Simulated assay, not measured.
Amino acid sequence: MRVRQSAIVTRPPVAALLVASLAVATTVAGMVIAWSLRPPEPAAPTTGPSVDDLRCGSVACQSVVRADVGGDAVEVLIGQGVGRIRTNGASGNNIFELTIAESGAAITADSLECRDAVVSVCLVHGSVGGEVRGELLVRRGGAWSRAQLPYVASGGYLGLGDVNADGVDDVVAVQRACSPGVDCSRRFAQVFSLVGDKAELGCTTVVATQDLLPGWPDVTPAPAQLRPCGA
Rank of each mutant, 00 (worst) to 15 (best):
D162M: 05
R38D: 01
V207N: 01
A173C: 07
R186K: 14
N93D: 11
A231N: 15
C56G: 00
V65L: 05
L160M: 03
A34G: 14
P42G: 06
F188K: 05
G230K: 12
G129P: 02
A20H: 04
V152Q: 11
G155E: 01
A7D: 12
L123N: 01
G81E: 04
Y157M: 11
A106G: 12
A90D: 08
P13L: 15
P180M: 09
T220K: 15
E131N: 14
D183R: 10
R176C: 10
A23T: 08
N94T: 14
G215T: 01
V121F: 08
T220A: 15
C178Y: 00
S63E: 09
V138E: 03
N88K: 13
V128T: 13
Q190P: 08
A173P: 10
V74M: 01
P40H: 08
R186Y: 14
A208R: 13
G104T: 03
R115S: 14
E200Q: 15
G142M: 03
L137C: 00
A67Q: 10
G141R: 00
P221C: 04
C61P: 02
V138A: 00
V69G: 02
A101F: 11
S6L: 13
K198N: 13
V182F: 12
R187Y: 04
M1W: 06
V174C: 09
L17G: 09
A29E: 08
D166G: 04
R140L: 07
A34V: 12
C114P: 03
G57P: 07
V132Q: 02
S179K: 13
V152L: 10
A231K: 15
T205N: 13
L22S: 13
V182D: 14
V82Q: 08
L98M: 03
E41S: 10
R139S: 01
A25C: 11
G215S: 04
V74S: 03
S50H: 09
C229V: 04
Q5S: 12
E41I: 10
Q5P: 09
R84H: 05
V119S: 04
L123M: 05
V168R: 00
W216V: 07
G134S: 01
V19L: 13
A90T: 12
L22V: 11
S154E: 05
V9T: 12
E41D: 11
E113I: 11
G142V: 02
N93R: 15
P12M: 07
A109M: 14
G230W: 14
V118I: 14
D166K: 02
G196L: 03
I33W: 15
S111A: 07
D183Y: 11
F192C: 06
G130T: 00
F192A: 06
A7G: 08
F96P: 00
L213P: 00
T47R: 08
L98V: 05
V3S: 15
N94S: 14
L112I: 03
V51M: 06
R84S: 02
P45N: 04
G30K: 05
A177S: 13
L194H: 10
Q225H: 05
Q148W: 05
L158H: 04
C184Y: 06
S58A: 10
C178R: 00
P45L: 01
A105K: 02
R115P: 14
G141I: 00
V59I: 10
R133Y: 02
V168H: 02
V3W: 02
I100E: 01
A34M: 08
G230Q: 05
A222V: 09
